[in-house]
Amino acid sequence: MTAALSDLPFLNLLLFQAAGVSFAADLEQIARMRDLAEEPDRAELHWFHEEIGMESVEPAQYGAPTVLTLRSDAAAPFRIVVDAMEDIVEVPIGDIQPFPPLVAGRALENGLWGVIPRNGIMILLVDLERLAHGNRCATRREG
């Protein structure tokens, strides 16, 4: 039997912005959040705008850069710098909409998997694991 959307569980999401676009990531994927200024190791840091395909953005434009370290068993977990963290919210899965067919494939290539319409804006859901995986694959290809 298919569950009604209202019966589906919630996701805890971290809301942040990049160049005026609102994004959300599953809090379960994140092991640690730390200001970039307090990050002791700056090597192998990934910048969100680069990973997501926002080439016009520069790191200098980040107002409050924050390093998210992904939950992982790897010796060097994927770390990504995001900007303008806004809130942590609990969102019912039923509020999440898939991308329309014309957009879905390309969005997924950039780690984007859904949309939450909220307060007149659209929050783009990003799968940080997918970003990390895509990055590892790209690194392997380049290697």
Partner: peptide, 12 residues
């Protein structure tokens, strides 16, 4: 606007 989309797809 959604990042990474071609120019003929201005967004949602």
């Amino acid at each position: 606007w959604v990042p990474g989309l071609p120019s003929y797809l201005p967004g949602l």
